[in-house]
């Protein structure tokens, strides 16, 4: 049972502004039936360009309904410029917080609002799509730019957190390496030192090779094999680990970048922070 705040419960049991507006100025939709939640948000402006009416319809859980209800209350009276500054954090805060696993409900609210504003401004669909970037999570249709934005706005540091906030990675898990990459891209290199295992630094070469082989066998290869791929250890020279991709991995265009990063991050986790992975040149 989720530990919902009183405010969430209030907005769920007594949702504000449910329904439709005849001739709305902007309409935005986010989510889908397949994903398990969906929100349609619409608004009407007054003569001064402020939102005078906002209505929503939601298919979704308690916190999805509460987030949508809260959002309508938050935007009424605001100009579009003010409204578009609302982040998912603002929605969650307005509700006194959401359980971590439910943060995606607040993100859905912010995205529907964005879509509604874009709709009002007659922003063209292609431009909107381009702004969203490339789909990373096929299961829930989440793009890289959406993920990066949420990572930045909420200081996310793990794939699990990204899943809680965006649903990305919550299905087949195939995009996990890519999400890790996006997180790494946002936080940069500054955290590298933190995660280092100082005790492992003074390993002998033999010890290091054993650890590398173990990490490959126990952690890395099973993941790759689950997607029909495989990997072969070619050589180890100091911290440089040379691998060759096999199976589906070898023909996958995104493999070089994704896999190198994935294998490297795993080896850094289990062996040493200094590991550098290289792909064997055929």
């Amino acid at each position: 049972m989720w530990d919902y705040t009183e405010k969430v419960k209030d907005h769920f049991y007594n949702p504000r502004n449910v329904g439709n507006i005849a001739n709305p100025d902007g309409v935005g939709e986010e989510g889908s039936l397949a994903c398990g939640d969906s929100l349609r948000l619409m608004f009407k402006l007054d003569e001064k360009g402020r939102i005078k009416e906002a209505k929503f319809q939601t298919f979704g859980c308690g916190s999805a309904i509460a987030s949508a209800s809260a959002l309508t209350e938050m935007i009424i009276g605001k100009t579009l410029e003010e409204a578009e500054k609302i982040t998912n954090q603002d929605i969650a805060e307005y509700l006194g917080g959401l359980p971590p696993e439910k943060m995606h409900c607040s993100v859905m609210g912010r995205e529907a609002l964005e879509a509604a504003i874009a709709n009002y401004r007659k922003e063209d669909v292609e431009a909107l799509r381009a702004r969203k970037g490339q789909v990373v999570c096929e299961c829930f249709g989440v793009t890289d730019n959406e993920i990066v934005r949420v990572i930045k706005e909420n200081q996310l540091r793990s794939v699990e957190e990204v899943t809680n906030f965006t649903k990305a990675g919550g299905g087949c898990r195939r995009c996990h390496p890519r999400i890790e990459e996006l997180i790494a891209g946002v936080i940069g290199v500054e955290q590298k030192q933190e995660a280092a295992h100082p005790s492992l630094k003074k390993m002998s070469n033999i010890q290091k090779m054993k650890l590398i082989e173990e990490a490959l066998e126990r952690e890395i290869k099973p993941t790759l094999r689950a997607d029909g791929g495989d990997l072969e250890l070619i050589d180890i020279e100091g911290d440089r680990v040379v691998v060759a991709l096999r199976g589906m991995c070898s023909s996958c265009p995104s493999s070089e970048l994704t896999l190198k990063k994935y294998v490297e991050s795993k080896l850094r986790e289990f062996v040493s922070e200094d590991i550098i992975v290289e792909e064997a040149k055929p």
């Binding site: 769920f12 039936l33 398990g36 939640d37 298919f59 979704g60 859980c61 308690g62 999805a64 309904i65």
Partner: peptide
């Protein structure tokens, strides 16, 4: 067209 958690709550 309606969601289970909302029903349960």
């Amino acid at each position: 067209y309606i969601e289970g958690e909302a029903i349960l709550l």
